[in-house]
Design a protein around this nucleic acid. Structure first.
Lengths: 334, 334
DNA sequence: ATGAAAGCGCTAACAG
DNA sequence: CTGTTAGCGCTTTCAT
């Protein structure tokens, strides 16, 4: 099965030159540096007809660089992260870089494991949507290799960062809806110490304030970003109220997934609960209930992460180091 | 930034043994083969305290094996493929194998590119949901390295294969629905030469027959599996009829996505069109229109792909080489 | 303008 | 029981 690999040595011998010369030519350095026109063409022709493919491992070993970067996300089945990953993969491919993707399932322990795996694979850099409470690990890590955080930042971090600006659009969205729901408007969030929870709660509070409503502390419920957590928080809320809530904002797509699962299982889809959420999905246009959302621009997020990381890998100092991107509102209520 | 790597040589020197001995110990081969208990412990202790991490590249270069496998899918943003990828990634991680994921965007040219990339990365094996018309390329490829096809097989292929058995459940689904739609029942498919289109059309035809209905050729419309193709086929159909169709089966999730996009844009979601499809999605439970589906078991698919591929990589002859897994019906109409 | 040689980190064959 | 050596494929001095 294994067909003998054609190496640079083979090419060199066939062309009647040394490995060194062949290497120069094949890396395009032959031109300016030395090597006669004629020799160059001969080598290139032979390489082509022999389907020469440089060994990535030999090269990585020598250069101490893997031309590989790692992406760590909570859940690839989450539509937003899937779009992000797809976009990032395209950018990497165009740059000849291999992307490694791993999921944490919103589990900090698993996050450590997959990050260590990637380190062991000697990735040149890391892009992470972390579910950890603190960025201490990444502070330390970033002394070894470039790390870019996105979507979530554990506490106020000085690390390179790409996020959607959450406060303003959330406030805007909530302030439009809130007037009809002065008596109750619930907030379901993830880990309270992660920045999205904080920012989105800040936006939520601010939006209520703009509508002249004061947030009541009991409206705010936190869990984690896993759908099962959304499901349970919502179930508990329904149980507590003895009915579904009248208005609800979920701080992320995964939470809303849990809520919708509960609602469909309990035949609540016809109730006139007013749902709003961070993160959009194409199928929301086809739902029986209207959901107003803040839509992130995942392609832009991916682009900035890649831009930041590749500059860092090249030893440059990208500016700015922390980037906040605008979001779009998807208002589906009339 | 780059902190000097600690190599096996360093460990060996610190422990006062040779590289070879250290290597044996660190690979667990020290035990049965030779090396004194005491030496072994010393080496291991030092390795641990130095945070020794073997260089994956050196090892790959030596072994001519990358401990890496490639997954090629049309679209990671497609929910089914996302679930599949996630599951496969978990299996790989547990086995210490790195998974490489690339998307083809339903574009055969891009498929060649990403497959070649993976070959260049010297993956040990490949799992592919191909959008190619023929499996000739993979026939050839599989002389070089193990290849497992899944979800789709270009023509009748003898290559290792994992698919959901489509004919029976599709027939079952259609035969239940068809009686109410004897006058018209449309079929939207992807590339007609790919097995899913063939099998699902066969199931569709058979289901109609079971309901005593004969398929009219004009009911069958083929494009490709990209959502935009679904969108366009559906738009053309609406234009032709001057109204939405009464009953429609889409052969895959991506096609349905296109149809739903069209319907929501043209405010057709309230029309009483009867939709059925291959592939399920959790949000379908929350849609305003009921969609009956054939649901694939993506986790099982992933497991079998991994099982097949890892056996092939280890030089075994897995049995059977082609596997067809059962599906579940999700009937949402009363 | 070109070649020889060293070395990246690792393991397996062969000698003690 | 342990050490020496060679070689995986590549690039980069340093000579010629």
């Amino acid at each position: 099965m294994k067909t003998k690999r054609v190496t640079i040595k083979d090419i060199a011998e066939l062309a009647g030159v040394s490995k060194a010369t062949a290497s120069l030519v094949l890396n395009g350095r032959g031109k300016e540096l030395r090597v006669a026109q004629e020799t160059r063409e001969r080598v290139l022709a032979i390489a082509r007809e022999q389907h020469y493919q440089p060994s990535i491992h030999a090269r990585s070993l020598r250069d101490n660089r893997s031309h590989t970067i790692g992406l760590v996300v909570p859940e690839i089945t989450n539509y937003g992260f899937a779009v992000f990953s797809h976009e990032l993969e395209t950018l990497c491919r165009e740059a000849g870089v291999q992307l490694l993707i791993s999921c944490t399932d919103e589990n900090p322990g698993q996050e450590s494991v997959v990050v260590n795996n990637m380190i062991a694979r000697q990735v040149d850099g890391l892009i992470v949507a972390s579910c950890m409470h603190s960025d201490a690990d990444y502070q330390k890590l970033s002394e070894q290799l470039p790390v870019v955080l996105f979507d979530r930042s554990p506490s106020d971090s000085a690390l390179p960062l790409v996020m959607t600006d959450s406060v303003t659009p959330t406030a805007e969205l909530i302030s439009r809806i809130a007037p009809q729901h002065a008596d109750e408007f619930w907030f379901l969030g993830g880990q309270p110490r992660l920045s999205p929870s904080r920012d989105r709660l800040a936006g939520f509070t601010q939006g209520l304030a703009q509508a002249g409503i004061t947030l009541r502390p009991e409206w705010v419920i936190n869990g984690n970003y896993h759908p099962s957590s959304g499901y349970e928080m919502f179930a508990a809320l329904c149980a507590r109220l003895g009915r579904p809530p009248k208005a609800l904002f979920t701080a992320a797509c995964g939470l809303l997934e849990g809520v919708l699962r509960y609602m469909s299982q309990h035949h609540l889809l016809d109730s006139n609960i007013h749902l709003a959420s961070f993160d959009d999905h194409y199928l929301y246009d086809s739902l029986s209930l209207r959901i107003d959302t803040v839509q992130q621009d995942n392609r832009q997020l991916a682009w900035h992460c890649y831009d930041l990381l590749s500059q860092l890998i090249d030893g440059q100092a990208p500016e700015p180091l922390q980037r906040y991107l605008p979001a779009t509102l998807q208002i589906r209520h009339p």
